[in-house]
Amino acid sequence: MASQGTKRSYEQMETDGERQNATEIRASVGKMIGGIGRFYIQMCTELKLSDYEGRLIQNSLTIERMVLSAFDERRNKYLEEHPSAGKDPKKTGGPIYRRVNGKWMRELILYDKEEIRRIWRQANNGDDATAGLTHMMIWHSNLNDATYQRTRALVRTGMDPRMCSLMQGSTLPRRSGAAGAAVKGVGTMVMELVRMIKRGINDRNFWRGENGRKTRIAYERMCNILKGKFQTAAQKAMMDQVRESRNPGNAEFEDLTFLARSALILRGSVAHKSCLPACVYGPAVASGYDFEREGYSLVGIDPFRLLQNSQVYSLIRPNENPAHKSQLVWMACHSAAFEDLRVLSFIKGTKVLPRGKLSTRGVQIASNENMETMESSTLELRSRYWAIRTRSGGNTNQQRASAGQISIQPTFSVQRNLPFDRTTIMAAFNGNTEGRTSDMRTEIIRMMESARPEDVSFQGRGVFELSDEKAASPIVPSFDMSNEGSYFFGDNAEEYDN
């Protein structure tokens, strides 16, 4: 783990906690998980779902989305002020799938948001429990990260689609708070800032007046979040320049895209947490497990152990491969979309394939898809080993990566060399080191050039047997250095459309 220093740990961010010791953190995270579980059980009762239907990941996603929508204050306010045809701002819903006479049927349900809020609060001892809501947002974000390569979004903001390893959390809503900021990748933060800068260039009043003052505060806050992700002084200094700019424009845009590229080699610290679907927490609570009393951590053995003992089902389209669908969801559960496939294969105990080789589309089923041909199958979400999630980018030494994705962002704290394609990355730096950030740029390029592919990161860190909950005997895996390590390699994943 990167030293926490003055930073709060993510469990504290996750639970809005002030400084807590490890036991208190485990208890408050457990409380959050228990609340999600209780809410899910109650919703299944309301909807009269069978046990099997309640364990269907598509039903879980609909129920999670309903509660997130019920608590989305800004959108609710907007919907009330701008009524649109056929949208009731006070209601929320989605597809629920039921097994009827041996076939899967889709039923569109509609609930009062007020009623959903009441059920959620009741499951969370009367609190709004925003930490639990954020947790579900991060699960949705991790699922998107594993399912889609955001080529269009990258290109629109002047970045290269091969930089997708920097895009963790790119679909997280803005209201996801400190826990959300911690899991956002460098590219995601750059993209958010670039969008602001572009608006400022096109709209003279963007930075002016009372609204402009708020915009400015948001801009500086985002700059500080991004600065905190960088691990070298030169990158941090460049972020200070971007933040202090009187009138952010093209120079800042250039600096930010430069920094994003540099992060492929001088990786930023991005938190990883295993956020599971509500249909995993519900049955665990129903079986009598007391998360608050037992304590829970999002970055240790607990999620692995929970998945070892969970039964989750998914709808499967006619030509999809259930094992591939399982891999997709497994990666999402562990926030591992940008991790090295060699490491993932070792931990999972079966070969993890790149996205383009998977015969599976996303987990969600569109409303126009034919239910007649839908089957369902068990998702295999178990693992051979477990490993500690990392909050750091690993040290800054790398190795060759593949054509589709030119770097990785480690999820697990496991000893290995970190793949990246130096030639491709360095070719993108057209040696432009003039301007006010020239000395920093020169320094950053120097550090990137001296990074050695064969150097090892996370020295001495290994994986653990599932029986080793105290992480007492690390097993340090050895990897084939020459092997392909990137998930979005030469990829044809669908595009994420909101």
Results as ranks from 00 to 15, higher is better:
A260R: 00
G268Q: 15
M426P: 01
S314Y: 03
Q415A: 14
T442W: 05
S287T: 09
A403T: 15
S310T: 11
P161K: 08
K48L: 12
N142K: 13
A182R: 00
P283Y: 08
M159R: 03
D302C: 04
K348R: 15
L266P: 00
Q327A: 05
E64C: 03
Q12I: 14
Y148G: 02
N124T: 07
F338D: 00
M440F: 09
N205V: 06
R361N: 04
L68Q: 12
I63Y: 01
L353N: 06
M13R: 09
S84V: 06
F338I: 07
K91F: 04
L143C: 12
V352I: 13
Q409I: 15
H334P: 05
S262Q: 09
S314F: 09
V67K: 07
I116N: 01
I347D: 02
K348P: 00
K90Y: 03
L143N: 03
F464H: 01
G86Y: 14
M189S: 08
Q20S: 13
C44S: 15
S335T: 11
Y52C: 15
K470I: 01
E11L: 00
E292N: 11
G5V: 06
S269R: 00
G94N: 08
H334L: 10
N397G: 12
V242D: 09
E114S: 13
G349F: 05
G93S: 06
R38A: 07
A401G: 14
Y111P: 00
S269M: 09
Q364F: 09
C223G: 08
L166I: 14
E372T: 15
A278L: 11
V476A: 14
Q399R: 13
V299M: 05
Q409G: 08
G212F: 09
E372D: 12
T188K: 12
R221T: 10
R99K: 14
H82D: 08
E292F: 06
Q327G: 05
R174K: 13
C44R: 10
K470Q: 09
D16A: 03
P277Q: 11
T130P: 15
T147F: 04
D439A: 01
T92F: 04
L266A: 11
M426F: 06
L418M: 15
G35H: 08
L298S: 07
M189D: 05
G282Q: 10
M32R: 03
F346G: 05
C223N: 11
A123I: 05
I445K: 08
Q20D: 02
V476L: 13
Q168R: 06
K184M: 13
A123K: 01
D497K: 00
N368E: 05
R452H: 03
S170E: 08
R243K: 10
I301L: 14
E210V: 09
S377E: 02
V299P: 10
R38C: 10
A387P: 06
S392C: 10
I444M: 13
S383Q: 10
K103P: 06
C275Y: 07
T424M: 04
L315A: 00
E11D: 13
G462K: 03
Q231S: 10
I444H: 04
D51E: 13
L166K: 05
T23E: 00
E18C: 12
S60L: 05
R195Y: 07
D302M: 03
K77V: 15
S170D: 12
Y281N: 09
V29C: 15
G187R: 09
L358P: 12
R384L: 14
E11K: 12
D491H: 12
L79K: 10
R267G: 10
K348N: 12
A85N: 04
E495R: 10
L466D: 09
V183K: 01
G200Y: 02
G35D: 04
Y111R: 07
G5E: 01
E443T: 09
G228P: 00
D455S: 14
E24W: 14
Q459H: 14
T257I: 14
Q364M: 06
E375Y: 05
A260P: 06
V414S: 05
M43L: 13
G228L: 02
G394M: 07
Q20F: 12
S376P: 13
D51W: 01
G393P: 07
S269I: 07
S392Y: 04
V194A: 15
S335N: 03
S478Q: 07
D497G: 12
I265T: 10
K90H: 07
L49E: 05
D480T: 08
V280A: 12
A153K: 11
R118L: 13
R65I: 10
R75Y: 07
A427C: 10
T433Q: 07
N321G: 01
M66E: 08
K184G: 06
V183I: 15
I25T: 15
F39D: 06
Y313K: 08
F253W: 03
P248M: 04
V312Y: 01
T373P: 11
E192F: 06
R26K: 15
D112M: 08
T130E: 07
S326L: 08
A284I: 03
V155T: 11
E495K: 12
R391A: 10
